[in-house]
Computed example of a mutant assay.
Amino acid sequence: MGWPIVIICILLASIFYLRMKARAEKDRREPDTGVAILDFGRAFPEEAIRAIHATADEKAYFVRLHDGKAGFMAAHGTHFVCHLIEAGKVNVSNAESGRGLKVHFTDFSYLDGVYEFVSPEIAAEVSLWLLGSFNPQSDFKAVPAG
């Protein structure tokens, strides 16, 4: 008489386990902007995020920081590899689709790739962030007019 109750409990426990496993796998496959912000904050606590844009597949995020610098995050499972872009350490060009950027990190080449965005406007804005993070220094002095 007790066996049917044991079998029903085992079936219910296995159904619960399979549902929780499926939910955990879904969370592992889909990076989240909130997790990206938290991971970047843990990696660089002194940097304040001003704006963030995800790629179309949400596997990478580009960050504009408060002082004109830029950052980058690439999803690896449920966490992100966070990178603070230093002046002169990134090369950017347009992707063939018009909605993406070809990015080459001179100090972290394993992050190189073509990053597609949902619109050309977002790609253009991110490219301006990356170019604006250079803060080029000039050796030329301004010549007064006159």
Rank of each mutant, 00 (worst) to 15 (best):
G132Q: 05
K89H: 10
S93P: 03
F16I: 06
P31T: 11
V92Q: 01
F117P: 02
W129G: 02
V118D: 13
F40L: 09
V63F: 15
K26N: 11
I7R: 13
E47P: 01
V92W: 02
P120G: 07
R99H: 10
I7D: 08
D27F: 05
A51D: 13
G34C: 07
I8K: 12
I7V: 15
S127L: 00
V6A: 15
G41H: 08
F40A: 05
A123L: 02
S138L: 12
L65V: 11
D139Y: 04
E125D: 06
R19Q: 09
H104F: 05
V118Y: 00
F80G: 05
A24F: 04
T33W: 06
D39S: 11
P45W: 07
A74P: 02
A124K: 08
Y17P: 00
K26C: 07
F72H: 10
G77L: 03
E58C: 05
A95M: 03
E25L: 13
D139A: 14
K89C: 07
F80H: 15
S138M: 09
L130R: 04
D32E: 15
Q137P: 02
I122F: 00
L128R: 09
E96P: 09
V92A: 02
G41F: 04
V143D: 07
Y61T: 02
A54S: 08
V90E: 05
L12G: 15
S127P: 00
T55L: 01
C82S: 15
F16H: 06
A95N: 09
T55V: 07
F44V: 05
H66K: 14
W129E: 01
L38V: 13
V118H: 04
F72D: 04
H83I: 06
S138F: 09
A124G: 05
A95T: 04
A24T: 08
G34T: 12
L131Y: 07
N91R: 14
Q137N: 10
F134Q: 12
A70W: 09
I7S: 09
M20A: 11
F72M: 09
F16G: 07
I15N: 06
A60W: 01
G98Y: 10
I8L: 15
D39G: 02
E125S: 02
K102P: 01
V114W: 03
A87L: 00
E30T: 15
V118P: 00
D57Q: 06
A60C: 11
I8G: 08
S119R: 05
H79K: 15
L111H: 11
K102Q: 10
L131G: 09
S127R: 11
E58H: 07
